[in-house]
Computed example of a mutant assay.
Amino acid sequence: MSEGKLYAVKNDEGKYWDFEDQDDFWPLDISDCPTTPSKEQAEIVADEQGGHVVTLVEEPEKVVLTKEQAKIVKDAHDNKIPACHIANKSDDEELLMNAYVNGYTVEKDKRYLVELDGLVTTDNAQQYLTKKNGKWFACRRMPGMHQDFTDEELNAAPEWAQQLNREEVTDDEQ
């Protein structure tokens, strides 16, 4: 048995051998068990019944890259010698080559919620730094309001807002 692989036998009509019933080739959606973990068993069936062995391998996970790393990989796809492009642009060749081959996602910017300590509404709802139409103000936590900020956004905020404590927002809270 090969680790992490399954095998199927497919004939020229696009049907798959059923390893459970072992009596015929069937369309994939009808076959009870179209795969086996044994490459040897699949090869025997292909030899005896016709068809060819198809190897099923789990799709590798995509690599998470920074925006800068993603640009290097994207540009490498347009380069005649992608490996050289990646080697010339980054010290992390293995990670970026993995991303080039298996795909990648770009990491999300960290986002922060800024609680305005001691500032509450008359019904005791906590107030948070909020921005709308270029204006900064206090508001209770409300969906649709711009209250989760990147470092870049907070660094462009008024000086008094830059000095407030930031709490990182997780994906669950966004």
Rank of each mutant, 00 (worst) to 15 (best):
L6N: 03
L6A: 02
N11L: 08
K15N: 12
K15H: 14
W17Q: 09
W17F: 11
D18W: 14
E20V: 03
E20A: 09
D21I: 08
D24P: 01
D24E: 15
W26R: 09
W26D: 03
I30W: 09
I30M: 15
S31I: 13
T35R: 09
T35C: 10
P37Q: 06
Q41S: 05
A42N: 08
E43R: 15
V45W: 13
V45K: 07
A46H: 05
G50W: 03
G50H: 08
G50Q: 08
G51K: 09
G51D: 04
H52R: 15
H52M: 03
H52G: 05
V53C: 09
V54R: 13
V54G: 03
L56Q: 07
V57F: 07
V57H: 04
E59V: 11
E59N: 12
E59C: 05
E61Y: 14
V64L: 09
V64C: 11
T66W: 12
E68V: 15
E68C: 13
A70C: 07
K71S: 12
V73Y: 04
A76Q: 06
A76V: 04
A76E: 02
N79K: 05
K80F: 10
K80Q: 12
P82V: 00
A83L: 13
A83Q: 10
C84R: 15
H85K: 12
I86S: 07
I86Q: 06
S90P: 13
S90W: 13
D91V: 13
D92V: 03
E93C: 07
E93V: 14
L96E: 06
M97A: 07
A99D: 00
Y100V: 05
V101N: 10
N102S: 01
N102L: 02
V106S: 04
V106W: 07
E107P: 02
D109F: 00
K110Y: 06
R111E: 15
L113A: 05
V114K: 00
L116K: 00
G118V: 03
G118Y: 02
L119W: 07
T121C: 11
T122S: 13
T122L: 12
N124Y: 09
A125S: 11
A125W: 02
Q127A: 01
Q127V: 00
Y128M: 01
N133A: 13
K135F: 10
W136E: 02
F137T: 10
R141K: 15
M142L: 07
P143E: 02
G144T: 07
G144D: 08
T150N: 01
T150K: 00
D151Y: 01
E153M: 02
L154A: 13
L154T: 00
A156E: 05
A157S: 14
A157L: 14
P158T: 00
E159R: 04
E159H: 02
W160P: 00
Q163H: 11
Q163R: 05
E168N: 11
T170L: 11
T170R: 14
T170S: 15
Q174P: 01
